[in-house]
């Protein structure tokens, strides 16, 4: 299949206002449907890299294309439409803790609604059904009316995934999704991401600390060190010794 990559980085640099280099000359492409894991020490720029894709962070120079289109000129509505097709999962789940699971999940649908309808919570029955289906996919349908802070960490992360599914995303960015979870729930969450990747063909990009997990789930591993790509191999070519290079201090 000759297809343009769903995401491509070309000579991307990011320098923070205080002069710190966030990203340095990033060049790589992500084909449609890949499960990509980005590894590296904390502070290596993984989180920054991820957030440049949906423009939660701006880059200093270079170009990022999503579905073949440069995302640089987007603003206002077009930027929100870009973000709509890119779901995002966070380390701290980022739910409204005192709201119900239903409200949290439905809030993933905001960009399909005019402002006044969404802020009054007037979501359609179809979307409410969609929310139930999304929760079923993360096996939490019975928690629909529970308050988010009544759930365990792993359950909250699954709610966050259901919320992202409401966007009908083509890409899911997961920023350290399991850093606050125990090993058992870690597996549940990673399995769900893998299933979304395989069953729905969603391109998934995950930041991880753990090399072992990366090797278990990834199609391809990219290693970052001090904002630079120091490693980029398909899973078949990955060896432990190579990966350890990523974690060496410069």
């Amino acid at each position: 299949m000759d297809k343009t990559p769903i995401i491509s980085f070309k000579n991307v640099n990011k320098v923070y206002a205080n002069g710190t280099v966030g990203l340095k000359n990033i060049n790589f492409e992500i084909p449609q449907g890949e499960f990509l894991v980005v590894v590296g020490l904390s502070g290596a720029g993984k989180s920054t890299l991820l957030r440049t894709i949906n423009r939660m962070h701006e880059i200093t120079s270079g170009e990022i294309r999503v579905e073949g289109e440069s995302i640089k000129p987007y603003k206002g509505r077009s930027l929100r439409l870009l973000r709509r097709k890119i779901g995002m999962i966070f380390q701290n789940f980022n739910l409204v803790k005192r709201s119900s699971v239903a409200k949290n999940v439905l809030s993933g649908r905001v960009s399909y609604y005019p402002t006044w309808k969404s802020i009054l919570g007037l979501f359609s029955t179809t979307d409410k059904q969609k929310a139930v289906q999304a929760l079923q996919r993360v096996s939490l349908a019975e928690k629909l009316y529970a308050r988010a802070d009544e759930l365990s960490g792993g359950q909250q992360q699954r709610v966050a995934i259901a919320r992202t599914l409401m966007q009908d995303p083509k890409i899911i960015l997961a920023d350290e999704p399991i850093a606050s979870l125990d090993p058992l729930t870690t597996k549940t969450v990673m399995d769900i991401l893998k299933r979304l990747n395989q069953e729905d063909g969603i391109t998934v990009i995950v930041n991880l600390h753990s090399v072992a997990l990366a090797r278990e789930y990834a199609d391809r591993i990219v290693g970052l060190r001090a904002g630079e790509v120091v490693y980029d191999e398909p899973i078949a070519a990955v060896t432990e010794a190579d990966l350890n290079r990523v974690y060496q201090t410069v």
């Binding site: 059904q129 139930v132 349908a141 019975e142 629909l144 009316y145």
Partner: peptide
């Protein structure tokens, strides 16, 4: 495909 939305306890509904 329609999915049955679970009914809320009446206090909530």
């Amino acid at each position: 495909m329609t999915t049955q939305i679970p009914r809320r306890p009446w206090l909530q509904r």
